[in-house]
Write a protein that binds this DNA or RNA. Sequence first.
DNA 1: AAGAAATGTAAAGTATATATTGCATTATAC
DNA 2: GTATAATGCAATATATACTTTACATTTCTT
Lengths: 71, 71
Amino acid sequence: MTNTRMKAQRKKLNMSQTELAQKASATRQTIGLIEAGEFNPSLKLCLSICYALDVTLDEIFWEDQSHEKEN
Amino acid sequence: MTNTRMKAQRKKLNMSQTELAQKASATRQTIGLIEAGEFNPSLKLCLSICYALDVTLDEIFWEDQSHEKEN
DNA sequence: AAGAAATGTAAAGTATATATTGCATTATAC
DNA sequence: GTATAATGCAATATATACTTTACATTTCTT
């Protein structure tokens, strides 16, 4: 359940969790936990992350419904 | 700052807030407040709403960055 | 191999999303 | 025009996102 698309996009931009956290005005821990799939970010934070990573919501946060909930 | 796209899609499907709430396993109040733009739903809830309304995240929750934050 | 940077993880505290209950108002159907 | 459904709005309670601080481990650079 880790968010591989988000992590991949961050790496693609050669950005550390700390840098992303700053751009998205969150903490490194929060970013780490989201990438680890250990929590459920708010829409605003998702949007901030998208802006920082230059992608849209669907690109990194969409999950197919059949993708049975795993927590 | 009300979420007009979400509301419009719900109406398009002839669904009441109560029905949408049930399908998305939330309460009517929560749905009402999200439509009113009075808070910041979690990603999971956004996804549940998308499934219930048969749209994707970008269709009803994406906001352009220039869309200056209004709360 | 050593030092630095990046990441994982955990405890405690704060802010806020969400639920629950309840009542008032507006729209819809008969 | 009265009943019924749909929505708006508030107060209180609870769950949990997110922060802060801190330390351990892994990865990168030299």
